[in-house]
Amino acid sequence: MTDIEVLLIGGRSGVGKTTVALETSVLLREAGVPHCLIEGDLLDHVHPAPPDDPSRTRITRRNLAALWANYAELGTRRLIYTNTVAILEPDLIRQALSAAAPPRLVNVLLTATDATARRRLGGRERGSELDIHLRRSAAAARRLEAEAPPGTVRVPTDRRTVRAVAEDVLTATGWTR
């Protein structure tokens, strides 16, 4: 049995992954639950991609492993990890954490309608990047819905407060102390 637990928050662009993860962290802090938060979308933000790693999977794994090693050294045993496809990459997570026993993974897929994602992305992206992000977001939503592993908890974000969504996400983990 492992004592490492990972909350994987996935979802299309514009669904609110980072915002919800930060609020989930607030709820955990308020409850006195030790944890750390890693924003996975920043772990592979390099251009150009490494020649031997065009999908940036290895650099993501290496960066996650380095960050986790620092947190684990402090005694941290619970990780909130956000990335669009986090729920589809359990092997990457397990390899990066390299624990003696496999970590317990809790998969949460945040969902939003195309209209909600468009509104949120429109407030964040400008110029030619908006259309690119809208197309990628829609494609990611379809892929995540089709490929989400069994047991994935789906949490809608449309017309809900960040706090309410984070409370649902936290409920999925069972982390109370």
Rank of each mutant, 00 (worst) to 15 (best):
L130W: 00
N83A: 12
L170G: 07
R143P: 07
V33C: 13
E125M: 14
T19W: 10
G122T: 07
D91H: 11
R77S: 11
L134P: 09
R136Q: 15
V46D: 01
L88N: 05
S137A: 15
A146V: 02
I87V: 03
E23Q: 13
L110S: 07
L42P: 00
K17D: 00
P50V: 04
L43M: 10
L134M: 02
A139T: 07
M1K: 03
S98G: 08
R160H: 05
V46G: 03
R58E: 15
E89G: 02
P50K: 08
R78M: 14
S55T: 12
W175C: 04
D44H: 06
H45R: 12
L8Y: 02
K17G: 04
L42I: 02
A72N: 07
A139W: 07
T116R: 12
M1Y: 05
E23C: 11
V6R: 00
G75R: 01
A72I: 02
L64D: 02
R160G: 07
I80T: 11
L74Y: 08
V26K: 10
L27I: 08
L97Y: 06
P34N: 00
T157E: 09
T113A: 06
E145R: 10
T84F: 00
R159Q: 10
E129F: 14
P102I: 02
A66E: 08
R143V: 08
N70D: 09
S25E: 15
I9Y: 09
A66Q: 11
A99R: 01
Y71H: 04
